[in-house]
Nucleic acid binder design. Structure first.
Lengths: 248, 248
DNA sequence: GCAAAAGTGTTAACTGTACACCCATGA
DNA sequence: TCATGGGTGTACAGTTAACACTTTTGC
């Protein structure tokens, strides 16, 4: 891609994306390490993002950032809101980075944040224009971030949790076929505490939002687990009845 | 207030506020009727809003708009998110209005929307810079709005409902002292259906988030109702225990 | 045969829901 | 005394929460 930044970019507004993934063990977030600039050695991770083009809407800008990193389209994506504190770009290392990457480094920039849920086994993230490297980090290891990205990240975790209680969005983090144990582990990773295995399975099965497949795990050194799919039609039926409380 | 728009305003970003009020009968929203411009007779109502100054953050801009209309400060305020569809300013009557009120009428503007909850008995709204008149309209009467304000308004109603289920924000719409019947009516207005009176009262009393006062209604032609207050401390205690489901 | 994770039922406590009558007041 | 809204209890159904052992597989 090769854009004329002077004319196409809206210089006051950016998007940033909190991209969640699940490796069957831990909930992870995709972060980028910026290319080093000037003589700043500090290397905070940050969220993928970019300025917005004048001919795309906000959702499209977020989709573009995701596509550049993951090559995936039609990703589950929700807006978190706008962040516009006056000091959001004031850390010394952030200013240095902006000076070498933006046409108007001192400009005030308001960012619109999104969170995305992806099946991280489906792709390898690749470095983009602004990133030296891209990596999946366990969410509980994230202690600091560039700009105001830690604030955005924390908001994203809260929203993910809040949403999981009222909608079964977790399926977006899993492959099409999954086991109930994987789903169970995922829910525990998001809510941050243990959930009773029997009660969890009973709830999912009773709500009929999972469809049992005629296929089991192979080659595992223990009783093989049955595969399931998300049952979209049944879930839609539930929603129409007004259901919105999973009780986690 | 008298600002130099060329220098102080961020021309690409505005805030718009959905201000809810409750008159003990219906849920209402504060709308403005724009001053007529050119030869456009159509007079759609719109949400109060303004461009953002470069020396204020997003929340402060929203507070400023509220203060200008209501003279109230410390209002309950939540951000709804950013709205940036490319066609959000494309209706003919909107373009005419922008031409006579904005320095760069053709500029793309992204808006950050907020909703606010106020006790509408505490003040009379007053016309502001951009508004010919200001009025409270029952939410169910709103069928169309200028710009993309109907979309924002609908999102605000959804969020108000969603939030009411997990937090007792309704108290912000009532005076400090209120009766349980008023609270009951308010909840019915927001959730949009009848709620059993006994079950409702039992729930509020059992959760201990209302404090019974030693004071009754006077001069009413029926059994006088007891006044209550919101019990902030007890509610905080509930939150700390992880409570977040009122079940409406 | 053993290690490892899958899969399965019951009970008690709590919560939600449906429902109808008497009470206190002003006019 | 009547019209108006305030205020109260009970029973049934459904949901949540706690808890431990047997099964199937690979090695």
């Amino acid at each position: 891609m090769n854009y004329n930044y002077e004319h196409d970019l809206n210089k006051g507004i950016s998007v940033d994306c909190v991209i969640f993934g699940f490796d069957f063990e831990k909930l992870k977030v995709l972060v980028i390490r910026r290319k080093p600039v000037e003589n700043i050695s500090e290397s905070l991770v940050s969220l993928p993002g970019d300025l917005i083009f004048n001919d795309e809407n906000l959702d499209q800008a977020a989709q573009r950032v995701l596509k550049e990193l993951t090559d995936l389209e039609n990703i589950y994506l929700e807006q978190l809101g706008a962040f516009g504190d006056l000091d959001r770009l004031s850390k010394p290392s952030d200013i240095a980075w902006l000076r070498s990457n933006r046409a108007q480094p001192e400009a005030r920039v308001i960012t619109v944040a999104y969170y995305a849920l992806v099946n991280l086994n489906a792709f390898d993230p690749k470095p983009s224009n602004f990133a030296e490297s891209v990596s999946w980090e366990p969410v509980e290891d994230i202690k600091s971030m560039a700009f105001d990205h830690l604030e955005i990240f924390n908001k994203a975790r809260e929203e993910l949790y809040r949403k999981l209680k009222i909608q079964p969005i977790g399926f977006n983090l899993l492959p099409k076929k999954f086991t109930l144990s994987q789903l169970h582990k995922l829910y525990e990773a998001i809510v941050g505490r243990e959930l009773d295995k029997r009660n969890f399975r009973r709830k999912m099965i009773k709500l009929e939002i999972v469809k049992k497949l005629d296929e089991k795990q192979k080659g595992v050194p223990h009783k093989p687990s049955n595969f399931y799919e998300f049952h979209v039609e049944n879930y839609k039926r539930l929603v129409n009845k007004g259901f919105d409380n999973f009780g986690f």
